[in-house]
Write a protein that binds this DNA or RNA. Sequence first.
DNA 1: CGCATTTGACCTGCGC
DNA 2: GCGCAGGTCAAATGCG
Length: 326
Amino acid sequence: MEYSSWINTSLDLNIKPLRLLDDAPPPKKEAESDFMELAGRKVSVKEETGALMEELNRVSAENRKLTQMLTVVCENYNALRSQVMEYMSKNADKSSDLSPSRKRKSESISNNDANNYGAMVANGTSESSSTDDDSSKNPREEKITAKISRMYVRTEPSDTSLIVKDGYQWRKYGQKVTRDNPCPRAYFKCSFAPTCPVKKKVQRSVEDQSVLVATYEGEHNHPSPSQADQETSGSTRCVTTLGSVPCSTALNSSGPTITLDLTKSKSSNEIKTPPRPKVESPEFQRFLVEQMASSLTKDPSFTSALAAAISGRIQLHQSPTEKWSK
DNA sequence: CGCATTTGACCTGCGC
DNA sequence: GCGCAGGTCAAATGCG
């Protein structure tokens, strides 16, 4: 699985339309007339306006929601980062003073990043968490070299099951209601290979119950049974691989507007925008790309958000994530 | 009938 | 040592 499919600039791309919608209504008529001309078709402008307005409202609401999410993610990221920094610097100074309750400590810390919707966080366990040196105190810990990774999966609100389709076969062996989350946590073991030590915990996020948090412990000692299936399966769940989010483009006087349609899958993209103009034309595509690039790079919000996204990506890449970057 | 899931009991580690 | 909370076990149950 490619890392690029997990980390995506989609949030950044929403900045432009959102701002447009919030600050001043876009000169739609112009855009539409351009659009019509490009399409070379005579379509009722009224009908188109109505449809576009509807879509615009919907996308605007979607974008607002996403922006709020992004804010929360950034806040939590910063908080977590400062916590980690503080913790690491503390441990660098006095490595002997370690909390004995590492098991539950790590859990409580990791809960903070539960807002990274659509992202997967893979991190090493004790060996990467600067508490290595107490392995000398507790020899049992040395055996636990299992990798712990985390995956966030958005589900449909109506979906109450705790099943995360990740291509492996899992057997549920327990369920428990934990203190910090009213939603039960389900425990799974990899059942594809009898010797496979991998375990998985799945629990709904406290903040957003439509998000499942799957925590993987250990590494599979066998290949994925359905790697190919996984990519093409029509699962109702959408593992948030944002790399393939469908988008639509439109032209207005101030340049092209990129609108990511995050609510529709590729197959169900039913916002029936008017028949596309000759987008296939290489000249038009080049023009679009140039306009998009220039408008994005001029936008300070975009550049700052991009910087934040990149810094987050760098952080992620610093931890060993071989498993998920395959 | 075989397998997966459910669920209450039990085990283990940690804090007080 | 006791209580609490998370994790695991295994008998009961459900389903194909």
